[in-house]
Structure formats: structure tokens, C-alpha cells
């Protein structure tokens, strides 16, 4: 009796961290199984795409229908910015309100903003936070659009607006 208890306790305890060494199934191009509490906009739409199982001939592509992924599981360059923004909305919003942070920096690099213009970009983004994040339900597409709008009126940043 005690022996059984012993073994099962050992197993149970190890199981306390199901994460040690093994994560959940990670989908290619990677947007299937993440838990995204409180996420808004594009991210949740992309996340809602169910993974349809993989065919053995694909390389890293997992779900044939994932938006914005190539069949071999990398992000298409045309949607890089929107997919990144969608997946990092909270961090970008938080960085923008503070005027610094890795998530905002990475966004700036995806937008092609030169190093010498970054500090100014952060300041403009912080000052215009309400114009970029217009509500708590804003989507990634709207954020990028709004940011473009703000930058278009700034002499130093207008050249980055596509």
C-alpha cells in the first residue's frame, strides 16, 4: 500500500511541472497553441485558426491554413510587421506608454526606423499613445495604421510611412 503510494507520489511530484523539458505542441510558424489571455485584435484572430494537422511532406509548416505563413513555416515578409504586432500587442502598448522597451524597439526595426531616429520615434509614440491605441479593442492593423498617421505628421518620421 505504502509502496504504491510512494511510486504515485513520485510521479505526481514530477508531474507538478509538466513543463520541465517538454513544452506543449508547438505549431510551425508558431501561432496555434499559445495561451493569450487578454489579447486583442489580430493576434487572437490568428490564434483562433485551428491547426489542421501536418502532411509529412511539409518541412516546418504545420497547419496548411495558417495566415501569413509560408508552407515551410516561416512568416511571409509581407505580414511580418502585422503578425509581430498582433502577437505582441500588450508588450508594445506597455512599451509605448513608457517610451522604451524591447518590444517597441523590435517593432521599430521591423518598420525600418534608423537607429538615429529611434529616440525620437519612442517619444512621438509615447506622446501620441491615445491616438495609436485608440481603445482597448484596437486591432494590430489599426495600431499600425494609426502609428503611420502620427508619423506622417512628424517631419523626422514621415519618410518611414509607406
Amino acid at each position: 500500500m505504502i509502496k504504491k503510494l510512494l511510486i504515485s507520489t513520485a510521479l505526481l511530484t514530477m508531474a507538478v511541472s509538466t513543463s520541465a523539458l517538454a513544452a506543449n505542441d508547438s505549431t510551425g510558424c508558431g501561432l496555434g497553441t499559445m495561451l493569450m489571455d487578454g489579447k486583442q485584435g489580430v493576434a487572437s484572430q490568428v490564434l483562433a485558426v485551428t491547426t489542421n494537422g501536418s502532411s509529412g511532406n511539409q518541412t516546418f509548416g504545420i497547419s496548411s491554413g495558417t495566415l501569413g505563413c509560408t508552407k515551410d513555416g516561416v512568416v511571409k515578409s509581407s505580414v511580418k510587421l502585422s503578425m509581430y504586432t498582433g502577437a505582441n500587442m500588450q508588450q508594445i502598448a506597455s512599451d509605448m506608454s513608457k517610451g522604451h522597451g524591447d518590444s517597441l524597439n523590435t517593432m521599430a526595426s521591423l518598420m525600418g526606423i534608423q537607429k538615429q531616429d529611434r529616440a525620437h520615434f519612442y517619444q512621438v509614440a509615447q506622446t501620441n499613445f491615445d491616438k495609436v491605441f485608440t481603445s482597448d479593442k484596437v486591432t494590430a492593423g489599426q495600431v499600425i495604421h494609426n502609428l503611420d498617421g502620427v508619423m506622417a505628421t512628424d517631419p523626422q518620421l514621415t519618410r518611414y510611412v509607406s
Binding site: S8, L11, L12, A15, V16, S17, T18, A22, A23, N24, D25, S26, T33, V74, K80, Y84, N88, D102, S103, N105, T106, A108, S109, L110
Partner: peptide, 21 residues
């Protein structure tokens, strides 16, 4: 400060098991 956009290569057990035991 801009490495978030790099790719990572990850090896993991393929499972959706949520029961730790």
C-alpha cells in the same frame, strides 16, 4: 533589444496532454 524577431529552434514532445501524471 531587437532579437525578439529572430527565429528559435525548439525540440519538444508532441502532445496536448494536460494531465501531468
Amino acid at each position: 533589444h531587437s532579437r525578439l524577431i529572430s527565429y528559435s529552434i525548439n525540440f519538444a514532445a508532441q502532445t496536448k496532454e494536460t494531465n501531468g501524471v
